[in-house]
Design a protein around this nucleic acid. Structure first.
Length: 288
DNA sequence: CACCAGGCAAGCC
DNA sequence: GGCTTGCATGGT
């Protein structure tokens, strides 16, 4: 990767294993929106960003090299060698196809608190509505971010959300999940924070997360994978269940069996495998 | 009108 | 323990 600063934009050249459509459409994040010109605009870590790609050149608009180093380099997981991961996963014929299909997927390193709330909202919900609820929440009580002449909103703090209470967040129409969001905010105002979880391994971090009402097995695994760098985490949702059953089993299996099978099969690369499979299952219509 | 959506908790046995 | 059911809301 080579970085040059042109006007106020950062231009990254010779970028490998990186495709914005793959990254933003594989279901890991909810705050990026495609523009008419093909670029994406989103907010992460209280910073807005417009980003576009043409082949192996990626442009970050109106962004300083400091913000790239402090925020976006880690957010887009540039430290990880995806070529190597795909090579290893390709030993399995199904993953060979899935990694070719979702060639430019990367797992974003997302904010913990935002991830907790986002995946609480994801339960028994569909992706367009998850995005809408999160966006409304940010507009309701996030801080204004002025960027390229437009106003965007940061993800609200636990304190801010908690101060509104269940009735206060009613406008976001989260339905039965509203009480879970408020109780999660309490945890993050008291016992929980980033530093606390950094000390814990996969199993104990999962146990702690599941103390929160609204966080079960699958939601916890998503948070571990997307915000806590537990790349062995293999979240099993309905799509993953279908795709694993389709390729590796003759008939329907329980979630527990799917999860155990996949974790043993993919090991420390489980999270990457899960993302390639999820994208493959959803985008490549294979009769699932 | 049913049925479903990146599940979960509570209530049963 | 495992299994069933209700859950808010919006889209088909």
């Amino acid at each position: 990767m080579r970085i040059s600063e042109i006007n106020n934009n950062l231009v990254l050249t010779n970028i490998k294993d990186f495709n914005l459509d793959n990254i933003f459409d594989c279901g890991q994040c909810f705050r990026w929106n495609k523009q008419n010109d093909g670029a994406y605009i989103g907010v992460a870590n209280s910073h807005a960003l417009k980003i576009s790609q043409k082949n192996d050149t990626v442009t970050l608009y109106d962004t300083s090299i400091e913000d790239f180093n402090n925020i976006w380099f880690n957010y887009f997981d540039f430290k990880t060698n995806y070529q190597e991961i795909k090579e290893i996963l390709s030993n399995d014929s199904v993953l060979k196809s899935a990694t070719e299909f979702g060639d430019g997927i990367r797992i974003l390193n997302q904010d913990l608190w935002e991830c907790v709330v986002s995946f609480i909202i994801s339960a028994s919900n569909n992706i367009p509505r998850i995005k809408k609820i999160i966006n409304t929440l940010c507009e309701l009580c996030g801080d204004e971010i002025n960027y390229m002449g437009e106003t965007y909103y940061s993800f609200p703090t636990p304190e801010k959300i908690h101060s509104l209470g269940i009735s206060g967040i009613e406008p976001i129409k989260a339905g039965f999940r509203d009480k879970y969001i408020i109780s999660a905010a309490e945890f993050f105002m008291n016992d929980f924070n980033d530093a606390y979880f950094e000390l814990l391994d996969y199993k104990s971090a999962k146990k702690e997360l599941m103390r929160i009402n609204g966080i079960g097995n699958k939601v916890a695994d998503c948070i571990l994978l997307f915000a806590l760098s537990k790349r062995n985490s293999f979240p099993v949702d309905v799509w993953i269940k279908r795709v694993v059953e389709h390729f590796y089993f003759e008939e329907e299996q329980t979630i527990e069996i799917i999860q155990k099978f996949s974790q043993e099969k993919f090991g420390k690369l489980g999270g990457y495998a899960q993302q390639y499979l999820f994208y493959y299952a959803r985008e490549q219509k294979i009769g699932l």
